[in-house]
């Protein structure tokens, strides 16, 4: 997936590091060092994600975000990148229409993951099928395929996989997964383990590489072969 990103960041060093890293991960990046140039680039081109710094020399990142959201005919995801991390600042960002918020100092890898997640969410509205590596999930037909093979999953296993697909590339904790699948009526702690076991038997075991990864027993996430 070739993702087009607009980066609006006034700090040259950070911008250079981000551009290099994103380009290394096959992103197409356009860069603006102030709000006015950023808005011009946004008007001229189409992007999958906009990475926006909150403090810009000419226009406040919050105002620019509002302007982009008000002008755009399609909902372009905005990842707010800022050195301010108070709840008030985060609230202002989300009020202005930001889709995600990342506080400096950040991991470059996390920027990539969040951009992928936002771009995927952006594209989710366009299609009922989601593909992660060789795994394809059809939400309307309730069908899952891996490497072209149709996989027969129970309703609960399908729902667990769907939660992981929606969270991709981020991980989902055990508690969050339990809350999303069973709500408050969770029978006992071994049930999730049992479902993950059956899910792995169907989704991972017949194939050379596993797509479901356990994070230190605390959560799960999907990984593509090239992620590993």
């Amino acid at each position: 997936m070739n993702i087009r990103v607009l980066l609006v960041e006034d700090n040259y060093a950070i911008a250079e590091q981000l551009c290099d890293y994103l380009a290394e991960h096959h992103f197409h990046v356009d860069y603006a060092n102030d709000g006015r140039r950023g808005f011009t680039l946004f008007e001229k081109n189409s992007y999958d994600v906009i990475i926006l710094d909150l403090m810009l020399p000419d226009i406040n990142g919050i105002e620019l975000c509002k302007k982009i959201k008000d002008t755009s005919t399609v909902a372009i995801p905005v990842l707010m990148l800022t050195a301010r991390d108070s709840i008030t600042d985060k609230g202002l960002g989300f009020d202005a229409g930001a889709d995600d918020y990342l506080t400096k100092p950040f991991e470059l890898e996390e920027v990539v993951m969040r951009c992928l997640a936002l771009a995927k969410r952006h594209q989710l509205h366009k299609s009922t099928c989601i593909s992660i590596g060789d795994l394809t999930i059809d939400m309307h037909q309730h069908q899952v395929q891996r490497a072209g093979r149709l996989l027969n999953l129970s309703i609960t296993d399908f729902n667990i996989l769907l939660v992981l697909v929606h969270a991709y590339p981020n991980a989902v904790s055990r508690t969050e997964l339990i809350a999303k699948i069973w709500g408050d009526e969770f029978p006992d702690s071994d049930v999730l383990r049992s479902h993950i076991y059956t899910l792995r038997n169907i989704v991972d075991k017949p194939f050379a590489q596993a797509i479901i990864k356990t994070i230190h027993g605390m959560g799960f996430k999907l990984v593509k072969h090239d992620d590993v």
């Binding site: 590091q17 890293y21 100092p105």
Partner: peptide
């Protein structure tokens, strides 16, 4: 945070 970001990256 800004210089720390640069150092971390």
């Amino acid at each position: 945070r800004t210089p720390t970001t640069i150092l971390k990256n």
